[in-house]
Amino acid sequence: MSTVIKPRTGTKLVKEALAQMLKGGVIMDVVNAEQAKIAEEAGAVAVMALERVPADIRADGGVARMSDPELIIQILESVSIPVMAKARIGHFVEAQILESLGVDCVDESEVLTPADEEFHIDKSQFTIPFVCGAKNLGEALRRIGEGAAMMRTKGEAGTGDVVEAVRHARTILGEIRRLHGMPKEELMSYAKNIGAPYDLVVKVAAEGKLPVVNFAAGGIATPADAALMMQLGVDGVFVGSGIFKSGNPMQRAQAIVKATTFYKDPEVLAKVSRNLGEAMVGRNCRDLAPSENLASRGW
């Protein structure tokens, strides 16, 4: 009694749904198959493939690009969880290559060196979903207007300092709270002032939340950092350098996974935070030179 069906792939619903299934989970940066297996074993809901973790990009300098496709293929073959990979802002050809490799989601990321200083990728043209970073509501709605199926805070990647992720989450969620219930006659000017598509402003005003899933990213290094972001109201967390730049990646990764689920339970948080060994050394965001400030990339 089986039926032949007409599958519709790459629809907005199908792209946004992938992110919905990742909610309450941790997405971990990995640079090779070995790290990807550790991340999966620790309970990551997805891995993010990139050439170097952000802390190394900061240390090494130079141009940061999409990973070698060979490494991405090795990562795809080594795990069963979704594999995401980073493309440079505006570099739609890197995104085309990543889609052809079979990655499940592209991160158009400020952590890599931008390929275009005016325009982002038209993400609506792709079959696979995109995640993008934002510092405020206007930026988030511009990316969603371009077709992003998932958002994340930018934070300051590779610092191990959560302060910027907190700032961006509080800014976006605070702006949504103020917009929710704003009188209709104020919405057009509000859309103009924050540089966001009017229809998305109307939608957020009515629903009181972003139309897509919103994760925290950029500087999360401890289980307590992850739980802090969850309590502020994000849907899940990305952890970059925080895991594989720490003394005991497996144990720290497991602890951050548990902290993201049991984020409201200080007893569990205390238990998983014990004896994790060295956290990544990190850098204070206040000590960064303006040229080292990755969150300012994106337009």
């Binding site: 792939t9 199908v14 079979g102 990655v103 499940d104």
Partner: peptide, 17 residues
């Protein structure tokens, strides 16, 4: 069988009787 249709680009919606 987990992930029976392949990666996300093969995810889909369809009207099912």
């Amino acid at each position: 069988k987990r992930n029976a249709f392949g990666p996300q680009r093969r995810s889909f919606e369809s009207d099912l009787k």
